[in-house]
Design a protein around this nucleic acid. Structure first.
Lengths: 323, 323
DNA sequence: TTGAAAGCGCTACCAA
DNA sequence: TTGGTAGCGCTTTCAA
């Protein structure tokens, strides 16, 4: 099916394509009589502007690539909400690309982004990603990029992360204030930067209280939490739990429920990125990392970079934004 | 920054752009010596193919528009996983557009899809959407579309839905088999087709057992479930619960926990679209609607339609696929 | 106030 | 086996 184009309209009305183009966007140069004619014809022949062609001509795709390590229920929905609220308002769209926790896939997705000429990239790294060499190409091609949430230490790209140190400390304080004496702390994948920073600050805080017995376990998934707890909960004396994320909390909650250990005088404290936790148990205490807020912030930063890039202004410093 | 183009390469090597283009894609017509030269130059000057231009030329964006009523943690992650697994394999990408439960926004997103020349649309309708007049334009423009999950009755587009009737019946049976005598059934938004079909079949099944006392409530959100249950749970005699979705179950779970009513001899049965529920309480019983599966199925159907469209084959019949 | 024409990067047809 | 060229749909400069 042939779609009506500006050229079609021009031929029908015996005027030039440039006039039609200008009339359609209400350019002041064009007389109102011509504008009227053009608009009528456009209406009649069901003309639909081809943004694809416009963007091609303007050398800007108006598309952002969003690369995430995996699509989870804990973080992705809130981050997507944040990102789209910012991008849609500005006429941008975004591809969502999941690395499925594979470094190779992450590299492929970056290729994809470059090939399809995205205007910018928002990326959260996989567990397997140890450096950002594969991101350097973005710099070469002058494609603005922001790393968010899961990152490695680097000083090339702006990054947006939660203030893990502060949050883990606050959680430790909550347990301490509550008078817990025997604490089980549940962390995620030991190799993640995000785990390490939470771990270190949590432990540091605890060190000031040598009377408190602290046990630490690492679990790569909620299921693994359940497995490990099936044994550990035999220890009745645990009076405080720390979960470093929604996912670990999920496993903990499940195990507690199973043994009817909820709603007792145990204290459960967790860092949370999502909206889910408020439905688990009202006695749980959260330190909230708002994924929505992070999405909004990261997207805004990216748009700023894109505008700077366009105006020729070079970025001067690499910033780590802590939320 | 000027990116290397095929033209650049052609000028450097003093050959034509057509030769470069063909060499780059290993066309059999081109001599291997030329191919080598071209590939070397491409490598040296960091040539990156411009898919955007290719697609423009080929009049196919390789992009699918995914329009959803809202971005929830219950359904969206699984559906996205299903969709991307199919689309990425075939070289397609997708925009995700959230209607935020607004009919107007839904219409705008459809415009966006049409304007940016997506090759196809996957859409789940908002609560406010009562007919599909606004989708008709897709037909006019010959853009293939599949409606999934939330739909209205129509016979223009293919649709993919869960077998709500069967699933609600099975849930009713579970409660009946368990010997429940006083059942509370929690449904979602009363106006949704999805609610109605589950409601009708659930009630029909129950009608065969007049001895069972059945109470029904409607709640638009998990929070509303919590509110209503705060009163209703005073009735200690409820021995069976039905939640029509993950979201309603979430509210129910929260209320039960709060009163320490979990792990008793109450039976909780729910229809579920996600992975979350398995962490709530192992005694809950689920009838699973697999979002991942739905995403895969819908995406495959769409790709088939796109290929048919391209080959000029007209669709003959409109099918409702029940999973 | 309007038009002619170039060109974004690439492909594909037709010729040589 | 290679090159010339038209053209996808649109914008924009320059000229009229």
């Amino acid at each position: 099916m042939k779609r009506t184009t500006i050229k079609d309209l021009a031929e029908m009305l015996n005027i030039s394509t440039s006039t039609v183009s200008r009339a359609l966007k209400d350019h002041p140069d064009i007389s109102s009589s011509v504008k009227l004619k053009v608009r009528e014809a456009a209406e009649t022949f069901n003309y639909v502007p081809n943004d694809f062609a416009v963007n091609f001509r303007k050398k800007s795709s108006k598309v952002i690539g969003l690369i995430v390590p995996e699509i989870t229920m804990f973080f992705i929905p809130s981050i997507i909400n944040g990102i789209s609220s910012v991008l849609n308002k500005e006429g941008y769209h975004f591809f969502i690309l999941s690395s499925n926790d594979s470094f190779e896939t992450e590299k492929e997705h970056l290729e994809t982004c470059i090939n399809s000429r995205v205007d910018g990239v928002l990326i959260s790294l996989t567990n397997e990603t140890k450096d950002i060499d594969h991101l350097l190409k973005l710099k070469e091609m002058e494609i603005p990029a922001i790393i968010f949430d899961k990152t490695v230490s680097q000083n090339i790209f702006q990054s947006v992360i939660f203030d893990n140190i502060r949050n883990a400390e606050l959680c430790a304080d909550k347990l301490i204030d509550h008078g817990c004496k025997n604490i089980l702390a549940i962390f995620g994948d030991e190799n993640l930067e995000i785990t390490q920073s939470r771990l270190v600050s949590f432990e540091n805080r605890m060190k000031h209280f040598p009377a408190i017995n602290l046990n630490i376990i690492y679990c790569k998934s909620a299921d693994q939490v359940k497995e490990k707890l099936d044994l550990l909960l035999d220890d009745d004396s645990i009076d405080g739990f720390f979960a470093m994320s929604d996912e670990t909390l999920m496993g903990l909650h499940s195990s507690l429920i199973k043994r009817s250990l909820n709603n007792t005088n145990r204290k459960v404290v967790s860092i949370s990125e999502g909206t889910l936790p408020k439905y688990l148990d009202e006695t749980y205490d959260y330190q909230v990392n708002d994924g929505n807020e992070m999405g909004i912030f990261a997207a805004k930063q990216l748009l700023t970079s894109i505008k700077n890039e366009a105006s020729g202004a070079r970025e001067t410093e690499t910033v780590v934004h802590r939320l």
